[in-house]
Design a binder for these strands. Structure first.
Lengths: 155, 155
DNA sequence: TCTCCGCTGTTACAATATCACACCGACTTG
DNA sequence: CAAGTCGGTGTGATATTGTAACAGCGGAGA
C-alpha cells in the first residue's frame, strides 16, 4: 500500500535519532537502537512482547520483558517512540525533532497508525482545560476508524 | 474538596441509568447495578480488580473477573461508564443522556478525573481526520496534569 | 411445556507490566 | 592506581489486567 521504502525511512529515522541523542547527551545504546529499529521497521503498533520475541530470534540471547520495557521508556522519554494506550502498543514517531503530543488515527482494519498532526486541536484542549483550572502535563488523542487505503479497497 | 453529596449524586445517576436502560430495553440487572454503584461511588477511576475485590467483600460470594468485565462492557455500551485507557480503569459518566466521546482530565496528584466536555474539539479532530481520508469511529482524549483543587493546595 | 436466549458462574489461561537484586563497565575522585 | 559511584543491563519471580471456553439457570414466547 504505502510504496515508500521502509529501509530508507528507517535508516533516516535512525540518523535523526542519533543526532537528537547526541545533542542531549542521551545514550542510544545497542539495545535501545535495536528496539527502536524493530519498532520503526514494523511501521505499525508493536506490543512489548512482540519485541521480546523478535529480539530473542535475531539476537541469539533471549531477552527479558523488563529489558524491552526499559528501552521503550528511554525511547519514549526522548520522543522517538509513542505509546498507544488503547492498544497497549508502541509506534515510532514520525517527527521526533519537535516535541509534540501523541495524536493517532488507528485503522481498525489494517492496524496501521498515522499521526494526526493537529497542534491547534491540542492547544485548544489545553486552553479549555486551563479555563477549568486544570494544568496540563500531557495530552493523548486516539481516534479509531477506517483509513483511506482500506476505504479505497472497499473494506 | 468536592463538598457535594456523593450518596445523592449516586442515587440520581442510578435513577437516570434506569430510565435510560428502560428506554432502550437494556437490562440493568442487580450485578450491573452493583458494579455501576461501585464505579460511581468511588468517584474516581477504579480498576476492574478493585471492583472484583469490593464485590467479594460486600456481596459474600466471590466474583470472577470475567463477571465484572462483562458488567463493565454492558455499562460502557450504554454510555454509563467510560474506560480510561491510559489508566486501565473505569469511571462513571457524568452525563450519559448525550452520546459523547470520552474526554478526560486526569489529576496526577489526587487521581481524580473530570470530563472535559469540549465537543467542538472532538468535531475538529474528526474533520481533520476526514480531510486526510480517515473515517472516525471513536475518539478518546486524555489529558494528565494537576487539577484546580490540588493546585490550590499548593501541590 | 418446550425451547431459545441472554445473563451469570467457573476454571483455566493469556497478555501486559513491574519488583528486587546482582553484575558490569565507564567515569570520577582521592 | 584504588575506591567509589552511577547508569545500563541480566535474571528470576511476581503482580496486574484481560479472555477463552463451556456449563447452568431462568425468564419470554411459541
Amino acid at each position: 500500500m504505502h510504496d515508500h521504502d521502509h529501509d530508507h525511512c528507517v535508516a533516516e529515522a535512525l540518523t535523526r535519532a542519533e543526532a537528537i541523542c547526541a545533542d542531549r547527551g542521551a545514550r542510544l545504546t545497542d539495545l535501545r537502537r535495536q528496539v527502536f529499529e524493530l519498532v520503526l521497521g514494523s511501521h505499525r503498533p508493536v506490543g512489548a512482547y512482540d519485541l521480546v520475541a523478535r529480539l530473542g530470534e535475531s539476537g541469539g540471547k533471549p531477552v527479558a520483558p523488563q529489558t524491552v520495557y526499559r528501552a521503550l521508556d528511554f525511547l519514549i522519554e526522548q520522543g522517538l517512540v509513542h505509546r498507544i494506550a488503547s492498544l497497549n502498543a508502541f509506534v515510532g514517531c514520525s517527527h521526533p525533532q519537535v516535541a509534540h503530543a501523541g495524536q493517532f488515527m488507528i485503522c481498525t482494519r489494517c492496524q496501521e497508525v498515522a499521526e494526526l498532526g493537529d497542534p491547534a486541536a491540542v492547544t485548544g484542549l489545553i486552553d479549555r482545560a486551563a479555563a477549568q483550572g486544570f494544568t496540563v502535563q500531557s495530552v493523548s488523542v486516539e481516534l479509531t476508524g477506517i483509513c483511506a487505503a482500506c476505504r479505497g479497497r472497499g473494506l
